[in-house]
Computed example of a mutant assay.
Amino acid sequence: MSQNQFKLVECPRDAMQGLHDFVPTELKSEYLNLLLQVGFDTLDFGSFVSPKAIPQMADTDEVLANLDLSNTSTKLLAIVANLRGVEDAVKHEQINYLGFPFSISETFQQRNTNSSIEKSLTTVEKMLSLCYKHNKTAVVYLSMGFGNPYGDEWNYEIVEKWADVLISKGVKILSLADTVGVSTPETITEILPKLISRFSNPEIGIHLHSTPYERFEKIEAAYNSGVKRIDSALKGFGGCPMAADDLTGNIATEDVIAYLNSRGETVELNMDKWNEAMGLSVKIFN
């Protein structure tokens, strides 16, 4: 697997969104501009959601205006949670991808987007139509893809059912999301190869949350399962604010890079810019 085949998605939006103190727009922009020079395939940079729900992302419009895209091949992804967010996001020519969290847990879909699964499916259909009209690509996250803490029914058949429904609607990129870090190397190895084999045409990615102690095992399981798209965040910051374990955050990008290097993969990233971003991160995540 070369770097061209393996798409690395850096997720500063997910890393920052739960921070209590507002990160100044200028500092956010400086951090994102450094990450844009590293060479990731995609940067999950912001979200068009209610400022009441996610105050940290209230300045996404301003941040976007501050981004220097003149010397980067990295594509921009913004998260949306409803049709209004979709309509706001598609207006921006610089944005390539719109990401929507589609939970296969009814309880979490209500909590996360104040919407039922069925209503969210309608939102996805409208998002796909608007993406087509505005030359964007939709990325749908199968949220709670490895289980949930609410007692909602979960099994592989449910995962496959909703993947089938979404792909039949026209979704081209589907990312299996472990919202609260309940995945294990065993469940990753059980689910992903089946899903990738079942749906060979759409791009299947993974967005894992983990404690620091389990990261390498999960990365290895995903790699061995044939995943070619993986979301991560510098130092593993962020994750779901509702996770019971404070240590449960994103997969750390440096761990992904180290693992790929250990497997002899060519990871074509500007590590000088990466180290600069690492240094600047202490001003944001302290």
Rank of each mutant, 00 (worst) to 15 (best):
L34Y: 12
H20A: 15
F45M: 05
T74W: 00
M16H: 04
N66K: 15
P51Y: 09
T72G: 06
D21N: 15
G39V: 05
P55T: 08
T72P: 05
D21I: 12
E62W: 13
E26T: 14
E26H: 11
N33A: 04
V23M: 03
K52Q: 12
F48G: 00
Q17A: 09
T74P: 00
A53R: 10
T72A: 12
Y31Q: 07
Q37P: 10
A58N: 12
A81E: 03
P55Q: 05
T74H: 03
D68W: 06
P55I: 04
N33C: 08
D41G: 13
V90A: 01
L76Q: 01
T60K: 01
D88W: 06
R84G: 11
Q17F: 08
V90P: 00
G18Q: 13
Q37M: 15
L34G: 02
L69F: 07
L67H: 05
I54E: 03
L36W: 02
T74E: 04
D59S: 11
L35I: 10
L43C: 05
K28N: 09
L19S: 03
E30A: 12
I79F: 06
V63K: 01
N82H: 03
N82V: 03
N33P: 06
S70W: 08
S50D: 10
P51Q: 07
V23R: 04
T60A: 09
G39Q: 07
V86F: 01
L67A: 10
S47I: 03
F40T: 01
R84F: 08
L19A: 08
Q37G: 12
T42Q: 10
P55N: 02
A58K: 14
E26C: 10
E62N: 14
A65H: 14
Q37L: 13
